[in-house]
Design a binder for these strands. Structure first.
Lengths: 150, 150
DNA sequence: CTTTTTGGTAGCATGTTGCAACCGTCGTGA
DNA sequence: TCACGACGGTTGCAACATGCTACCAAAAAG
């Protein structure tokens, strides 16, 4: 169980997000949840993580409101873990990590799993950071205002 | 020093990204780099991380091609850590985490640091996951093809 | 009713982190 | 030019987290 929080009191939203997710295993659990995993055993087989670690991570994610534990959809007495709206809102994070990985860690032609538009079966468009008026922004085009209300 | 890799051999780009970044400290280092930090001491003061941990993380990030060590811009004999193109490509990841944090971990009106368009001073548009033909996609509108060439 | 699967717990060895102390080099002011 | 503080680390150690294996109760399957 994670008791200590490291970044939770930060005024930086990135730090709070990082703290809420917990660790990398948790992020891969969320990825698997997006890919359709729901049951303890599915996550465990998919990730190869130790069961006690998985137990702890699932608990943290449920406590953090990213997943929720619901009765199994097939009518069995077991429970399933599904993404809450807050968890589904992590979609751009997962997509961003996926695209970064595709572009930087695979040789041309090297096979990898691929996220596609269900309707068309095509790859997704690369994420773009846009200004309020729709201009494409690079890192250098932005700056951080240290503190700001709302 | 991180010797063992956990996800590096995965065919999933998300896993490789996660492995390449290393841990949450590394991601916050990258965030600070986007915010203008360059020097060891800047990262250390900003993050409050132990110096040996910071040393190790900076080394990992340099080894992974996310940061590079360059001579200090002010002409001193010290070195600075700056984002490589690969590192700058993490921009959407940081922005996605920031927006998720803003939307889920701050009470309305609670102050937080804010990323703005330098030219206009306005907040950024929320990231959108788009299909190849420009439709806005929710998680349910997508599916993962387990393995695929290029 | 027996066996297998599921979803965990418990204990222990090992790895990683955080803290504090130390240290050589660099910059700076007198 | 020389002393002193800042910078950028390294080292050792204690505490904590992780991963592995064994175990276990409830549920499902047969």
């Amino acid at each position: 169980m994670v008791t200590r929080t490291r970044f939770d009191d930060s005024e930086c939203p990135v730090a709070r997000s990082v703290d809420a997710i917990g660790d990398w295993w948790s992020l891969l659990i969320v990825r698997d949840a997006f890919d359709g995993s729901r049951r303890f055993g599915e996550f465990q087989r998919s990730l190869g993580v130790a069961k006690n670690i998985l137990t702890a991570r699932l608990r943290t994610l449920v406590a953090g409101g990213v997943l929720e534990s619901v009765p199994a959809s097939d009518g069995s007495a077991y429970r399933e873990y599904v993404l809450t709206p807050k968890g589904k809102a992590l979609f751009p994070v997962i997509v961003a990590l996926r695209q970064w990985g595709e572009q930087n860690f695979f040789a041309p032609g090297e096979p990898h799993s691929q996220l596609v538009d269900r309707q068309q079966g095509h790859r997704l468009r690369a994420l773009e950071v846009l200004s309020a008026d729709g201009r494409r922004l690079n890192p250098d085009d932005t700056t951080v205002h240290k503190i700001s209300t709302q």
